[in-house]
Simulated assay, not measured.
Amino acid sequence: MASVQAQPVANAAPEAQVQSAVERVISSIQADPATRSGDIAKTIAVVQKQFLPYTDFEYTTRLAVGKAWRDATVEQRQQLFEQFQLLLVRSYALSLSQLREQNVKFRYKPAPVAATAADVVVETHVLNNGDEIQIDYRMRRTPSGWKIYDINMLGAWLIEVYRQQFADILAKDGINGLLAYLNRHNARQAARP
């Protein structure tokens, strides 16, 4: 069964965008025997196809890298974005692979959005075998609609976690050191079965 590339709706409400992104990924994973059996490469492919169109991970990268982003060359910025996006996609895919055979339900809380709002948080609740986990998605208004740029799982916003980690690496080894770290990390993760 071929799945169609996700296409966010430019004027959709933020919670509708999150719901569409999450449910497209989950339904694609549950519909494919390979992803249901834990094939992480195929799960990553699903996340890239079904989730990435709803994100602005270039903005995420800029925020996580912080002040060093301004000092990076255009080529370094592109490499930072590509490597960090790969890290985020793989992390999200690994989290989703834990839910592959389970009867998971999601609840999406409508986000109050002022007409001039540029940033909003959409709260979701994942119901899994009697447990409830809150996952929040921070979104920003872009010319093509609301885009996810940060995720809060278990009380930690991804950007804050990575900003501190990256700041330590940048202070010690600079932009090229951060690129080397991301390349090594992604290569190690890709080598895992």
Rank of each mutant, 00 (worst) to 15 (best):
V46I: 08
N11E: 13
L127V: 10
L87H: 04
A117V: 04
Y59D: 04
F57S: 12
V122A: 12
A13I: 07
L154G: 10
Y149Q: 07
K172M: 01
L52S: 11
S27A: 05
E123Y: 12
S20R: 09
R62I: 00
A31G: 05
R90P: 04
H125G: 14
A72Y: 12
R107Y: 08
W157M: 11
T124L: 04
A10C: 09
Y59I: 04
T124F: 02
N103M: 13
S97M: 14
L86W: 08
F84S: 08
T60M: 08
V161E: 09
N11I: 11
Q50V: 01
L88H: 08
Q164L: 09
T55Y: 04
R36D: 01
L182S: 03
K105A: 07
A117K: 00
G177K: 02
A171Q: 12
I135L: 15
K49C: 02
K172F: 00
D150Y: 03
A31R: 06
R138F: 00
R141L: 15
A190T: 14
V89E: 06
I133C: 01
R163I: 10
F106Q: 15
R36F: 01
R70A: 04
T61V: 02
A187M: 08
F166N: 08
M139Y: 03
V9M: 10
K109W: 09
A10Q: 10
Q50I: 03
E23R: 10
R107C: 05
D32R: 03
A41D: 06
Q5D: 14
V65E: 01
L99Y: 11
F106M: 15
W69R: 14
Y149R: 11
N186L: 12
A72D: 10
E23W: 07
L94C: 03
R100Q: 07
A156L: 09
G66N: 00
Q79V: 11
M153R: 15
I175R: 02
Q164C: 03
L80E: 04
L170M: 04
A31V: 02
T73V: 03
Y181A: 10
V120F: 13
K172A: 02
S144A: 15
K67Q: 11
Y92N: 00
T61W: 00
R24S: 06
Y59S: 04
E75W: 09
D168F: 03
V65L: 01
L94S: 09
R90I: 08
Q79E: 11
R188N: 15
T142R: 03
P143R: 10
Y108L: 14
Q164F: 10
A111H: 13
M1P: 08
E15V: 07
A10T: 13
V122Y: 10
L99M: 05
A64W: 03
L52W: 13
K172H: 02
G155M: 06
V25M: 06
V25Y: 03
E101T: 01
P110C: 01
F51K: 06
V161W: 04
K49V: 01
P53G: 04
N128R: 11
A21H: 10
V120G: 08
G174C: 04
M153I: 08
M1Q: 11
S3G: 09
R70Y: 01
S37V: 02
E160K: 13
G130V: 02
E82Y: 05
A187S: 11
Q189H: 09
W146Q: 06
N103P: 09
P53E: 10
D168H: 05
V25K: 06
A13C: 10
Y108T: 15
I44W: 01
S91W: 05
E82Q: 14
L179G: 00
K109Y: 13
V120E: 07
Q48R: 11
R100N: 07
G38N: 05
